[in-house]
Design a protein around this nucleic acid. Structure first.
Lengths: 344, 344
DNA sequence: ACGCTTCAGTGAAGCGGTTCAGTGATTTCT
DNA sequence: AGAAATCACTGAACCGCTTCACTGAAGCGT
């Protein structure tokens, strides 16, 4: 590889000091450089195809212009994460124009966060977006007092770090509201995950609130618990069917896939015999039979918002407030709204 | 943020020179350090929670221990890319143990590759995996003579850069072989994308080869062209149905989704009236009605292999040969194999 | 003609590591 | 016993860039 040219080469060619080259190339306004000199430097830089060395610059500036995305997720969930590309795109669409790069760290063993601690302590990055950070995570807390810029994707219960998340409660509520407005009175619920997961308990809470608002009774026997996977939806629905709900809110499209399978296996039809609403709007929700009514999660927005918050902290030392993003109820056929329209 | 301790701090605390600290911490074997001194240094480092600064180290060593994943993909394809998380995981499972980090660069505007050129010229990374690099891409070629370590994910026609890809030809062939072995003689083909895409033409070639091997005629009117999206599958299938194929090989599951919709809209049933095999084994292929027989692409392996090749180049100056990874035919119900078994 | 600004630019220190060449003190060899 | 080799370690240069403090020249007002 041909030796890359350094600032010294540019300085020599332009006949000025390295200092001047630096000032010109960085557009330092507080220093006056004559137009001719400026041009000479610019020309020299172009001629030598000069690109300042990132490490040297980071070292001198004590800033890397790189942010991290730390994924603390078990491999099987990582692989199945349909949102990740969108979130990455969302982050990148904010960081790239701002001149920041994105470093991705996959932390497989969540109990061994050495990996991302090094990322931070070794000063690879100026800030990080953490996904799937858990519990009171002592490492996280150990970092916080340092005021290292961090933003969470997903909430971490005991922490006061800024986060960005969707408004799970109101999203779930709007789904269940919709079912109620279609005339359903006996509505079941299958969660997306065990209740330890904040998103899971929030969605269940939304379900409860909707019932309350409409003076419908909340009954434990109409609630089942999923665990991210399709299979859990199948089992949950099988155990729920004997309760004879007329509609079910399934707090995850993947779990809904399994629920759908169980309904079909029982010889029932959606939405005629049982209405269903999912959650997430995974890409294939629209291609299911019937197309699944669901809650759309703004994945790109999550990434972009988290990135904006992070850059705010990094650049202006801001103290951004956490954000709950709005979701959207996507009405397709599984909820039976179309059916009603046809009949009407 | 409390000032981070530097190598000087450690040296002072241990009562040795910075040189010695560096030698101890890097386990330089060619230099003899007494066991006591070594321990004093280690203790001091621990006490100060010392982590060497990445930028300084990169600057001195002229190596960043970071590799790039450059995604030259239009946003809508990026978002829908179900493989990306797996590929990232595959890369990371190789790079992380080797002490390398992963920088992701999303290049939205493929005609403006300034972005990744800077990534390289500014020496952020020691090597890169390029996805979706196009054409003769002058920038790519401009980089190659520099011997900058590069590996391609997907092939780039006019280039002799090492790549990793799936063996599209033999994969497609095995799918069509399977249909033929089930007794089909009039088999249609819908490509995954326009033929400019190497993967697309390779899959079509595999289709042709299978026919040839079995002395079946190849007919243009049985071939249609998709363009990644579901809709294109719908349209392609609609225009193909009048040709009355008894089976169809669709070179993309997403496109197959649309094809399936068209078949259903025509009042036909898969596989009874029309057998179908897809390509990719996206997560939801298994949940379709009927579950889709398809070709599984080893996404994790793609990432891991590309990463291994890249590290080989970076670390040992190797000149790895390109790799074609094997795929697997996943037999479900859409091909009708189950049906036959039941009948038999 | 003198001091005071402003202009245009430079020298050198510093960022935090790595590494080459060397240096005393021991040990080994003959 | 003296030279050679080994041991255990250090000084200082260097990686490439930023930035503070400073300098010499020109412009300005009186």
């Amino acid at each position: 590889m041909a030796r890359k040219s350094s600032i010294t080469d540019v300085a020599k060619l332009a006949g000025v000091s390295r200092t001047t080259v630096s000032y010109v190339l960085n557009n330092v306004m507080s220093i006056h450089i004559s137009e001719q000199t400026r041009q000479r430097v610019l020309d020299a830089a172009r001629e030598l195809d000069y690109h300042p060395n990132a490490s040297a610059r980071s070292l001198a500036r004590k800033q890397t212009f790189t942010v991290g995305l730390v994924l603390c997720v078990s491999p099987d969930r990582l692989i199945a994460d349909a949102f990740l590309p969108s979130v990455i795109y969302g982050i990148s669409s904010v960081t790239t124009p701002a001149g920041f790069r994105l470093l991705i760290e996959v932390v497989e063993d969540v109990t061994q966060p050495d990996a991302y601690v090094r990322l931070i302590r070794e000063a690879h990055i100026d800030g990080a977006i953490l996904a799937g950070a858990r519990l009171g995570d002592q490492y996280l807390l150990g970092l916080h007092p340092d005021n290292f810029p961090l933003v969470l994707w997903d909430r971490v219960p005991g922490s006061d770090l800024p986060f960005v998340d969707v408004d799970n409660i109101s999203a779930a509520r709007s789904a269940v509201d919709h079912l109620i407005s279609l005339g359903h009175q006996r509505i079941g619920c299958i969660t997306n995950a065990p209740l330890e997961h904040p998103a899971s308990s929030a969605r269940l809470r939304g379900y409860q609130l909707a019932l309350e608002m409409h003076n419908l009774p909340y009954a434990d026997q109409l609630v089942r618990y999923g665990d991210f996977h399709e299979r859990s939806g199948y089992e949950a629905m099988n155990s729920l069917l004997p309760e004879r709900p007329s509609a079910v809110f399934v707090a995850s499209d993947v779990v809904a896939l399994g629920a759908l399978r169980a309904v079909r296996a029982a010889g029932l039809r959606v939405p005629r015999d049982l209405a269903m609403i999912g959650f997430d709007d995974i890409q294939f929700a629209q291609y299911l039979q019937p197309p699944l009514t669901t809650i759309r999660v703004p994945a790109h927005e999550i990434g972009a918002t988290a990135a904006r918050m992070l850059l705010d902290i990094i650049q202006t030392g801001g103290h951004p407030t956490s954000v709950l993003l709005d979701t959207e109820l996507i009405i397709r056929e599984s909820c039976g709204a179309q059916l009603r329209t046809e009949i009407a």
